[in-house]
Write a protein that binds this DNA or RNA. Structure first.
Lengths: 254, 254
DNA sequence: CGACGCGTTGAATTTACTCAATTAGAGTGG
DNA sequence: CCACTCTAATTGAGTAAATTCAACGCGTCG
């Protein structure tokens, strides 16, 4: 892990929270400042935090992809979520003593660590932001429930398709897609660890999705020519992502 | 659903929260009062809230078992968690506009609905309780991640065994076990919906666990003669339940 | 070049599913 | 008390989905 100075990309956390409710300029400025501090950089495959360690900061993911996973005694592991730019993790820092899972960089990752004091300042003084952070945490849970459902009920084709839909839509929500495609750094091995399938089977499954014209993955990019069709095929329903501005009654005016 | 007056059982929410941190007498009194109001009763299989509806109250489960589940377009459903006495659900009431899952009674269930105002009073005035409620919410997430892992990585035997370990230990944590056994109202069909297996396969799996002397389920009771052995068999590690008094630094003195 | 990561393929095997029928038990009403 | 009904548990046989194991191709990088 490397520490470097300030970066200046668009703040995707703000973009994401505004899917829930409109923030005021002042609130946005506060969030900008939060994530404008020094940044930690991680290399692909580098560990960000490990199972058993105490969490120390709230991490805001600025660039790159990471995954949350659990190791099992038999040597296998389950990826339980993917962390994308704009995502927050480890809100448990203020409560839990030790991590029950690990987080690891997939690509090069830049993270803005947010200290406890800053967080408490926000929750004390900016109720609308606090509410939006709650929304984010609850959506994270909803995603976790959907993953349970995905692995438990869908066959390999729909299961992989569902994961691809989710990632595409989450990326689109923060503006990281271009038309019907997006950057896609996941290897088939990672997809298999996330879906509970073997890498061999994932390979054959993706080939089938390709043959059906539903997806195309090449050169680290994912293209979904007909998202509606893939959603139908994968029994994907967007509601669990709660992206339809559900906090509109709280919208700021300025 | 039926409304009835006050009941007086031991308050399992308090018991559960004290696994995290010791509460003061005053705090306990507040929590007692919270859940001492009128109670809602549900019959087995009765719906408590349905996917798509807006959540209206925070429900504290006082008696009985319920399950949270998601319906799929193909008619199947996935049970994503079980709600036991002392559990809270639908903290999302203040944030999300619509439920992305349903909740249904398994046995006869009695629930104490907690209004928004009461909740806000607590978070404003009782930081230690608030912290403990956060702990509860975070543990709920940790459980959801473990379920994802369970379904994704363990074979049928360990998967069912793991579920039984979890339920037993959660019940034990609130004092609802007797020696090595506990009430167990789940049908094999429910177990299959929770584990992503078919009921036929669950049946054969439980028979195997029985033959191995690991569990015995009869007359709506579960007995686990050697919990250590079942945990080993199921690759069960308790850490994700965060039951070891992690908030001890916050303990009340009186 | 050689090592390595990643994707791909084949063949055999196993786990879990499907479908259908049967048994057991609890509860109901005549 | 017994027939009737329902739900839940159980069994058997055939099938399908996914796994395992092993090997190979291909591009990148040191």
């Amino acid at each position: 892990m490397t520490l470097v100075g300030t970066l200046s990309e668009p703040n995707l956390l703000i973009k994401k929270l505004e899917l829930y409710t409109r923030l005021s300029c002042r609130e946005k400025a506060v969030l900008e400042r939060l994530s404008a501090g020094p940044v930690r950089l991680y290399q692909p495959r580098e560990s960000i935090i490990r199972q058993g360690e105490p969490p120390e900061v709230v991490n805001l993911f600025r660039q790159g992809w990471a995954c949350r996973f659990k190791d099992l005694p038999n040597g296998r592991r389950q990826v339980v979520s993917f962390l994308l730019p704009g995502d927050l993790c480890d809100l448990n820092v203020f409560v839990l003593r030790q991590m029950d899972h690990s987080i690891e960089a997939i690509t090069a990752v830049s993270v803005a660590p947010i200290a406890r004091a800053e967080f408490e300042m926000i929750t004390a003084e900016y109720p609308r932001i606090t509410q939006a952070l709650w929304w984010d945490a609850l959506v994270t849970n909803a995603i976790q429930r959907e993953w349970t459902t995905n692995i438990g009920q869908r066959d390999a084709g729909a299961r992989v398709g569902h994961l691809l839909c989710e990632l595409f839509i989450r990326l689109r929500a923060v503006g990281l897609t271009t038309g019907s495609s997006c950057a896609f750094p996941l290897t088939q091995a990672l997809i298999s660890e996330a879906t509970g399938l073997t890498n061999v089977h994932v390979n054959r499954t993706i080939q089938r999705l390709r043959t059906l014209g539903l997806v195309s993955i090449k050169e680290r990019r994912l293209a979904i020519p007909d998202l509606e069709a893939l959603m139908e095929f994968s029994m994907f329903e967007t509601n669990y992502l709660h992206l339809d501005h559900e906090g509109r009654h709280l919208d700021a005016n300025d």
